[in-house]
Computed example of a mutant assay.
Amino acid sequence: MARVYEYDVFISYQREGATVPAWVRTHFYPRLAELLDDNVDHQVKIFFDDGIPGGTNWPLAVRTALLRTRILLPVCSPKYFLNEWCLAEWHSMARREKLVGLASLERPQGLIYPVIFCDSENFPKYAKDRRMQNLKPWNLPYPQFQDTVEYLGFHREVERIAIELADLIGRAPEWRPDWPVDTPDPDPPRTPTLPRF
Rank of each mutant, 00 (worst) to 15 (best):
L99S: 12
R160V: 06
P177C: 04
G54C: 10
W175P: 10
L66E: 08
L66K: 06
S92I: 09
E89P: 05
D147N: 12
F47V: 02
Y29F: 15
Y13L: 02
I112C: 05
W90E: 03
L165F: 00
F154V: 03
A65P: 04
R70C: 04
T19K: 14
I52S: 08
P143C: 11
L135D: 09
Q109H: 05
R68Y: 10
P53R: 15
R15T: 11
L152P: 00
L72H: 01
V115C: 06
E159Y: 12
D49F: 12
D167G: 06
H27Q: 01
I11V: 10
L135F: 15
Y151K: 00
L194N: 09
I52H: 10
T26G: 05
F28I: 02
A2W: 02
T183P: 00
T148I: 10
P59S: 06
D37A: 14
F145W: 07
V9L: 07
Y5W: 10
L36W: 07
E150L: 12
D187G: 04
L105Q: 15
W23C: 01
K125P: 00
Q146G: 01
K125Y: 06
T183W: 03
R15M: 07
D187H: 11
V149Q: 11
H155Y: 13
N122A: 12
V20F: 11
C76R: 00
T64S: 14
P74D: 04
E6Y: 11
E97V: 12
G55Y: 11
R15A: 08
L82C: 06
A2C: 09
R31Q: 14
V24C: 06
E106V: 03
F10P: 00
R68I: 04
K98G: 03
Y7N: 15
L111A: 07
E121H: 11
D147H: 12
P177N: 13
L82H: 09
N83R: 14
E121T: 15
V62M: 15
A65L: 08
P186Q: 05
I11C: 05
L99W: 11
H27I: 04
V40S: 02
A127G: 05
Y13C: 04
G17V: 06
L165M: 04
G51L: 12
A33Y: 04
W90C: 01
A166L: 00
I71L: 05
S77W: 02
H27T: 02
I112T: 09
W23A: 01
Y126K: 01
R25V: 02
L72N: 13
F81R: 01
V100Q: 08
Q14F: 13
L60W: 03
I11M: 07
P184T: 08
I169G: 10
P177H: 13
L140E: 07
F47R: 05
P78H: 11
L32H: 06
Y7Q: 09
A33G: 00
D185F: 11
C118F: 05
E106Y: 03
F145C: 02
Q109A: 13
R190D: 09
G110V: 08
N134Y: 10
H27S: 02
N139M: 01
F117A: 02
L135M: 12
